[in-house]
Design a binder for these strands. Structure first.
Length: 192
DNA sequence: ATGCATGAGCA
DNA sequence: GCTCATGCATA
């Protein structure tokens, strides 16, 4: 979202992409500033970007204090036994902490991570006697293609002119840059 | 921390 | 064939 094309060739656009256009706002902020805050916000509607931001910050700080890595948090979520929740990757935890997930995604993950944090801080005071080892099983690795700088610059140029090229355009671009068509298609998706 | 990729769900 | 949430691999 918020595709702010970094006009600077080297900027990585760490863009804090909170906010988002969601037609879900029901309580408009009163122009008459007086006791109109959402003290009675809906049961589970903590969608305020600023609240998410501060939570993410507190979360990271407390996680570090517990001496737990992002990867640890991700896998520990499974032990939390929440209905439709399994584990998450280090990537996702990282992105949550840095607010680089979509607003909706942040809102959905917050209560889960919040639950983990509380559980973890409790377990810290009342340690457990059990411990178990799990053997790791080696699997086949996946390869990651890397788009060279020159090609990437070309893609960015194309993107600036047309963020959603047609299938034909993509094929043409792919051929010019000598990249697989699918690689180009996915690049555009991720860029958007 | 981030680049490229996958898969589900939708149109 | 896109968006979205998410992850593997790697910088």
């Amino acid at each position: 979202e918020v595709g702010s094309t970094p006009s600077h060739p080297h900027s990585h656009m760490p863009a804090l992409n909170h906010m988002a256009h969601h037609p879900q706002s029901m309580n408009l902020p009163h122009p008459h500033g007086l006791a109109s805050h959402a003290v009675l916000a809906g049961p589970e509607t903590e969608t305020d970007p600023r609240e998410l931001e501060s939570f993410a910050e507190r979360f990271k700080q407390r996680r570090i204090k517990l001496g737990v890595t992002q990867a640890d948090v991700g896998s520990a979520l499974a032990n939390l036994k929440i209905p439709g929740v399994g584990c998450l990757s280090q990537s996702t935890i990282c992105r949550f902490e840095s607010l680089t997930l979509s607003h909706n995604n942040m809102v959905a993950l917050k209560p889960i991570l919040e639950a983990w944090l509380e559980e973890a801080e409790r377990a810290q005071m009342q340690p457990r006697p059990s411990s178990e080892k799990i053997a790791a099983i080696a699997e086949k690795k996946r390869k990651r293609t890397s788009i060279a700088a020159p090609e990437k610059r070309s893609l960015e140029a194309y993107f600036a002119v047309q963020p959603r090229p047609s299938s034909e355009k993509i094929a043409a671009i792919a051929e010019k840059l000598d990249l697989k068509k699918n690689v180009v298609r996915v690049w555009f998706c991720n860029q958007r």
